[in-house]
Simulated assay, not measured.
Amino acid sequence: MRTPSTLLAAFTLLAVTACGAAGPVNSGSTSTGGQPLTQGATPMQQTMYFGAQYRFDEGLIIGVSTPKSFRPSGSAYPASSRAVAFEISIRNDGDQPYQLSGLSVSATVASVAAKQVQDPTQGYSGIIDAGKDVQPGRDTQVTLAFAVPDQPTQLQLCVRPSTNSPAVAVYGGSA
């Protein structure tokens, strides 16, 4: 039987490879509410389960929901027999506007990149407000979907506040 700590250790190992983070990994410091605890210097990478929130140094707080499985419509791109969707909540507690266009989200299944699914028929259109800024003290939500195998699988979602950010929050679990 797999224990949560064994699964978290496996996610951490995969995350280092899949997300390409260069830096220390802090895989065991979350509170009972899923919030990462601060322990001295902020880690370059934080691994947690879906449903948790992570606070980046810039004051950006990002939460990722548990995955919601769905069958993409015939008009979805790329074509896939199954996909999972995530609600990503973004709160700007920093002192500067956050450019939503900088948000970087990628997914991996078994160390292989998962393709983002665009299915406007079902409301999965990617980051449609990418040109907007999230002002300090404000929040927004983005819904993204990724193609996954037909059978339940382990999935990781890597979130960075910008594509060149060394900090990465890695969310993992079953999908």
Results as ranks from 00 to 15, higher is better:
residue 23 G to I: 12
residue 24 P to A: 13
residue 25 V to T: 11
residue 27 S to M: 10
residue 29 S to C: 14
residue 30 T to E: 15
residue 31 S to D: 13
residue 32 T to I: 15
residue 35 Q to M: 15
residue 39 Q to V: 13
residue 40 G to R: 02
residue 43 P to R: 02
residue 46 Q to L: 03
residue 48 M to R: 10
residue 49 Y to E: 10
residue 53 Q to D: 14
residue 63 G to V: 01
residue 65 S to E: 04
residue 65 S to Y: 03
residue 67 P to A: 07
residue 67 P to V: 00
residue 69 S to L: 03
residue 69 S to I: 06
residue 71 R to Y: 03
residue 73 S to Q: 09
residue 75 S to K: 12
residue 75 S to T: 14
residue 77 Y to E: 15
residue 80 S to F: 01
residue 82 R to Q: 10
residue 87 E to F: 13
residue 88 I to G: 04
residue 88 I to M: 02
residue 90 I to K: 00
residue 90 I to W: 02
residue 91 R to M: 13
residue 92 N to Y: 01
residue 94 G to E: 00
residue 97 P to M: 11
residue 98 Y to F: 06
residue 103 L to K: 01
residue 104 S to Y: 11
residue 104 S to R: 13
residue 106 S to A: 14
residue 106 S to E: 08
residue 107 A to G: 09
residue 109 V to M: 03
residue 109 V to K: 00
residue 112 V to D: 11
residue 112 V to H: 05
residue 112 V to I: 14
residue 113 A to P: 12
residue 113 A to Q: 11
residue 113 A to G: 06
residue 116 Q to V: 08
residue 117 V to R: 01
residue 118 Q to H: 10
residue 118 Q to E: 09
residue 120 P to G: 12
residue 120 P to M: 04
residue 120 P to S: 08
residue 120 P to Q: 11
residue 121 T to R: 04
residue 128 I to C: 08
residue 133 D to G: 12
residue 133 D to L: 12
residue 134 V to N: 02
residue 135 Q to I: 02
residue 137 G to S: 07
residue 138 R to G: 09
residue 139 D to Y: 15
residue 139 D to C: 13
